[in-house]
Simulated scan of single mutants.
Amino acid sequence: MTRPVESEPDVARNVTIEMDEGFLADLRKVFDVETDEEAVREAAMRLAMYVRRQEFIDDIKSGEIDLQYDVRNGRARPTPPAWTAVPDGGGPHRVEVLGP
Rank of each mutant, 00 (worst) to 15 (best):
V40N: 01
D88M: 01
D20R: 15
M49R: 12
M45F: 09
R46E: 03
M49K: 13
D20A: 14
P81H: 00
M49S: 08
V5Y: 03
R53L: 09
V30P: 00
V40F: 03
P80A: 07
A43N: 09
A25D: 14
T2S: 15
R94K: 15
D36K: 01
V5E: 02
E96A: 11
Q68V: 02
I17V: 14
M19H: 10
V40A: 03
K61H: 12
D66G: 04
N14V: 04
D58E: 06
G99K: 09
A12Y: 10
A12R: 14
W83M: 05
D59G: 10
G91H: 05
R52A: 14
D70E: 08
M19S: 07
V51T: 10
R46F: 15
T79Q: 12
T79G: 12
V86D: 03
V33N: 03
P78F: 01
V33P: 02
V33L: 02
L67R: 09
F31W: 05
D10K: 07
D10P: 06
M1S: 15
E6I: 12
V71R: 11
R41P: 12
P80T: 11
M19K: 12
P78I: 03
V5D: 05
E21H: 15
P9G: 01
D88W: 03
I60H: 07
T16S: 13
Y50E: 05
M1K: 12
S62P: 08
E42C: 10
I57Y: 10
D66Q: 02
T84Y: 04
R75D: 10
R53Q: 09
D58A: 11
L27P: 01
A43M: 14
V11A: 12
Y69M: 15
G99H: 09
A43I: 09
D32C: 04
R53W: 11
E8L: 14
T2P: 13
D10M: 06
T16G: 11
R72D: 12
P87I: 03
R52S: 08
P78A: 04
D20W: 10
F56C: 12
R94M: 06
V15M: 12
D10T: 06
S62K: 12
E38W: 00
F23Y: 13
G90T: 02
V11R: 15
E34K: 15
V11C: 11
P92N: 09
E8H: 11
V30W: 01
G99P: 14
P78W: 00
R53E: 07
R41A: 15
T2H: 14
R46T: 04
G90Q: 04
A48F: 08
L47T: 06
V33D: 05
R52Y: 08
R13E: 08
D70I: 00
D36R: 01
P87K: 07
G90C: 06
S62V: 01
R75Y: 07
F23V: 04
I60F: 03
T84H: 05
V33Y: 01
R3Q: 14
E64C: 04
V95C: 06
F56K: 15
E21I: 11
D10C: 00
V15W: 11
D10R: 08
